[in-house]
Computed example of a mutant assay.
Amino acid sequence: MSTRDFRQVDVFTTEALLGNPLAVVHGADGLSDDRMRAIARWTNLSETSFLLAPTDPAADYRLRIFTPAAELPFAGHPTLGSAHAWLEADGVPAGERVVQQCGVGLVELRRAEGRLAFAAPPLTQAPVTDAEIATVARALRIAPDDVVEARRLVNGPHFVGVRLRDAAAVLALQPDWSAFEGLEVGVVGLHEPGGESALEVRVFGPDLGFTEDPVTGSFNAAAAQWLTGAGTLPPSYVAAQGTAIGRRGRIHVDTDADGTIWVGGDTRTTVHGTLSL
């Protein structure tokens, strides 16, 4: 039997049980791909991450990320939660910022206003076809005309980003889980100005092993690049996610003068123990 340090981190919240939980396995070198997949299926969270020694000398650690059904090259809440766990386990970055190595390459993290934030990775945008919009509309149980705009967004994960008329329309969705046809769909709607949050977000991925993700850093990074670039949202704002499923995720987006978008959130350890295999 082998043992490894294990943490479950609540991400994008200051309050226990109201963010997106992440399972983190420390010292995962030596675990096979099949073993990692089995652990991810067992935790049954939207993602489980594995901390390993880096193979790139510029990185502080290497990260592999699994859903219950697939490995991801990048994901936001595992990036923040894993950095939190690595630092809490006495990890010391070589430079001013934490540098994570993962499937999309190197991702930088910084701490600002007491919370971790990652630099949004490069984003590829493409038009969404009429057939894809029709599929998304069926899956969301809305009319195609309810879609204000849509974009294909790729930053490691592949999303279809959909904007509805407002936040209330996003919160009212009751999806048909059987109708997504392999698409991972992120839906956004603007809140009225002056509130705590500028944007309401929901992300659905039933074919990736989860139905609705509580809070999704990678999609929020993509949505920030898409919507701030289009002038729909200001350079800095707060988004809400998880509301419809009883969570209170808050995603803090900030844009530097050089155009770098930082996606941040609060993190806290809720479980710390030993994984025995």
Rank of each mutant, 00 (worst) to 15 (best):
T274K: 10
G161A: 14
D146H: 11
V253L: 08
E200R: 09
P235S: 04
V188K: 01
G205M: 12
V188N: 02
P144E: 05
R250Q: 14
L164Q: 04
N155D: 13
T232P: 00
V238N: 08
G205K: 10
A221E: 06
T255P: 04
F219E: 05
G242N: 00
I142V: 15
R247Y: 05
S236K: 00
T274D: 12
E196R: 15
T228P: 02
Q225T: 05
R152M: 12
L190A: 13
T274S: 13
R250G: 06
P234T: 04
S178D: 15
E200K: 01
R248I: 00
Q174A: 15
F204E: 04
S197P: 00
I245P: 01
T270A: 10
L190N: 03
A222G: 11
R248Y: 00
F159L: 11
V215Q: 00
G156M: 11
S197D: 13
T270G: 01
L199R: 01
F159V: 09
F204G: 08
A168F: 04
Q241F: 07
G186F: 06
L233G: 07
G156R: 10
G182Y: 12
H272G: 08
R163T: 09
E184Q: 14
L208S: 14
S236Y: 01
A150T: 02
F159W: 14
A240I: 01
V188L: 02
D256R: 12
I261M: 01
A224I: 04
Q225Y: 01
Q241R: 06
V201D: 03
G189K: 03
